[in-house]
């Protein structure tokens, strides 16, 4: 397992250089478009970390994005913190929420877990819109301009890169093997000594952190949050679709899916503003029928890509 880390390290450096160059040179329009892409990469990679590897499909992952957005905004507006501290607060809040939610919902199997997470994210959204004294309710929170769009892009871009590196590390580790074993056969894994509930909860917490940071970065980016735009179910669905398209339980699958769907989304938005959701639906159907395992695993099975946990 101890193969050379050099290719991975070079890839990370190249990614970092590309992010810095993009942030420095791109036009404001391209920064906005790039922000969407790195948002998709971060969220799908974070969803993949728990759902792709353990097979526990979370239909409420947006709750971590939302709690991150609200925590960051409140810490900035009511707590007077700067963006770095507020972003860390967002990450911590997401981790704590994942620990609490996970230790309850991850005891449920299959569809029951998916439904419990859907309910949990809706419950938090409703709480955000009714707890007016804290959250401003439906009218949301307007933020001071703490971070430029370029800064927000870079923050989220580095988070995306960090999430990929984290996934890479997990995929090579004993912990990662345990997660995959849970996905394949949880009873069998437990019979071999895998502490499944503990491993799933750990993966859940790890996956919540980047989503929480993404919520914060999004708040810095648009300077305004409200319950409808920070807890959209559509965002969870996008995480699922992007990961499925690229291939769950792989390091780069969600990245490939997010790039493809992110770019396609820009294209579809621009050309077909009225039917783009319909096209989206067709795309989902197409994926499920033609490449249910995802692009990367398909390419690995065909021998076009090497079959390795490093990709």
């Amino acid at each position: 397992m101890k193969e050379s880390l050099l290719p991975a390290a070079l890839a990370v450096l190249a990614g970092l250089a590309a992010l810095l160059a993009y942030a420095a040179l791109a036009s404001p329009y391209l920064i906005a478009a790039g922000f969407t892409i790195v948002l998709f990469v971060t969220l799908s990679a974070s969803w993949n970390l728990v759902s792709g590897y353990t097979g526990y499909v979370s239909f409420g992952h947006v709750v971590f994005f939302g709690i991150g957005a609200y925590t960051a905004s409140l810490l900035a507006v009511k707590g007077g913190l700067g963006w770095p501290a507020a972003t860390l607060g967002a990450a911590s809040a997401a981790a704590v929420l994942a620990l609490v939610l996970g230790s309850i919902t991850l005891r449920l199997k299959g569809a029951y877990f998916a439904i419990a997470m859907l309910g949990a994210s809706e419950a938090v959204r409703v709480a955000a819109s009714t707890w007016e004294s804290l959250t401003g309710g439906g009218s949301g929170i307007t933020l001071p301009n703490l971070l430029s769009p370029r800064g927000a892009f870079l923050l989220l871009g580095i988070t995306a890169l960090g999430t990929i590196v984290l996934t890479y590390a997990v995929a090579q580790s004993r912990f990662g093997l345990h997660l995959l074993a849970i996905r394949e056969d949880e009873t069998g894994a437990e019979a071999m000594g895998v502490a499944a509930t503990r491993a799933k909860t750990a993966a859940f917490v790890l996956s919540a952190v980047p989503a929480g940071i993404a919520g914060a970065a999004n708040a810095w980016h648009i300077n305004y949050i409200d319950p409808e735009s920070t807890f959209p179910i559509l965002l969870t669905i996008q995480m699922i679709v992007m990961t499925m398209l690229g291939g769950g339980g792989t390091v780069l699958g969600p990245v490939v899916g997010a790039l493809l769907l992110g770019l396609a989304g820009e294209f579809l938005w621009a050309r077909f503003p009225f039917i783009h959701l319909g096209l989206y639906g067709l795309l989902i159907v197409g994926i499920v029928i033609f490449i249910p395992e995802g692009l990367l695993p398909r390419l690995m099975a065909r021998g076009i890509l090497p079959r390795t946990r490093r990709l």
């Binding site: 995959l180 074993a181 394949e184 056969d185 009873t187 894994a189 019979a191």
Partner: peptide, 9 residues
């Protein structure tokens, strides 16, 4: 008795 190997591993 019913095998429980991890198929996609």
């Amino acid at each position: 008795q019913v095998i429980r190997v991890f198929g996609q591993m």
